[in-house]
Design a protein around this nucleic acid. Structure first.
Lengths: 199, 199
DNA sequence: CTTATAATCAAATCATTGTTTGATTATCGC
DNA sequence: GCGATAATCAAACAATGATTTGATTATAAG
């Protein structure tokens, strides 16, 4: 057997999507190249045609894509000229929504962050990006406190509490469940804005 | 080489502690028997003397211990005759504190839950225990709402938001950091009680 | 059409790693 | 002290799984 008809060949893109699912289900070490290749109807060896760097390269490519996805929106929102509470609300909604819309990748960035960082090829880029992400939230919260719109809280603890809650959505969200991503995003935003109400 | 002097033999207990650390750092699949045995100064084969069930048995034993640790306190608190807000505050504090005091195990129960459940020997016990745990929180929150002490929120979303935040502490807490476990626990409790304030 | 290239496969390779085995020695109860 | 047992090791074993290789065929370009 050899090259398939054009209609049946698989794209780099398709491989990354399948890989995200597989890595999500089994974890990086738990996922085999066969799992991934099988998910797109290839043999393990064929993956090397698309990603000569092998398993590690595929994994990093998945994360790379996810990272871009998630940070893009947030940066735009932070730059907006809005009152702190409105800005934070939008940020949280966008963040949570993005998690519900890309559960597999979002979960990977949470659960396999450690793995990613311990990989030989792991670019410090990930750490930097994560810190930058957290920094954006810190900034919004600090601004709100300074403006007297938010009650004074420990910015570090609050930010991480918020991030933990948002990330955790990737664990329990079910597309077929009672609540839509928008519902969930709105409610989580409510919770944290309420938590910051002064007085 | 063979049996070491009594002072140098390792206990089952020590193995479990080392294993928790190693599993935490590398993940279940990423951790090798050598990693674990090395951490207590044994060879891989020697572990089978203490745990004939091998890697899987060690992993489950670690989780088992953790599960007991964490649930014990919470149950006691829920049974206490206290006003809903006070009860919830204590529960959150106890929970977060327990996370900071057993980071490795806490993180394992979070990050390797999926692995645990996919293991052949995985007792449904874990799912049950986790649901029971979540149930206790749900109950406290529902009671508070019914009593008019808490504003009405979606109990499901709120509970998971809270759990996510608390679990996440295992990711960022550093014993040598600026804040003690007690500090963090108190602040997180504040955040969520504030979020529930009526009016 | 012809030919170069892209996409694939089957099978071999090679390393890693969980597990087993048999030997060796300290310790403990008698 | 002596034998039984516990704790350990080194080395062998077996399985798994990532990666490589060489062959095979569809497609696209000329």
């Amino acid at each position: 057997m050899a090259r398939r008809p054009a209609s049946q060949t698989v794209s780099r893109r398709a491989i990354l999507e399948a890989a995200a699912r597989v890595f999500h289900e089994r974890g990086y070490h738990g996922a085999t190249m066969q799992d991934i290749s099988g998910a797109v109807g290839l043999t393990a060896g064929s993956l090397y045609h698309h990603f000569s760097g092998g398993k590690e390269a595929i994994f990093l490519a998945v994360l790379e894509a996810g990272l871009a996805q998630v940070t893009a929106d947030l940066k735009a929102i932070v730059a907006l000229p809005l009152p702190p509470d409105e800005k934070l609300r939008r940020a949280i909604c966008a963040h949570v929504l993005s998690v519900t819309e890309h559960v597999a990748v979002a979960a990977l960035m949470v659960f396999e962050m450690r793995t990613a960082l311990s990989l030989p090829e792991a670019p410090a880029r990930y750490l930097t990006a994560r810190d930058a992400f957290e920094g954006l939230y810190r900034q919004m919260i600090a601004e709100g406190i300074a403006a007297g719109v938010f009650r004074p809280v420990d910015v570090g603890v609050f930010t991480r509490t918020l991030l933990g809650a948002a990330n955790w959505v990737s664990v329990w969200y079910r597309p077929e469940g009672r609540l839509t991503g928008v519902d969930i995003a709105g409610q989580i935003a409510d919770i944290f804005l309420n938590a910051l109400r002064a007085g």
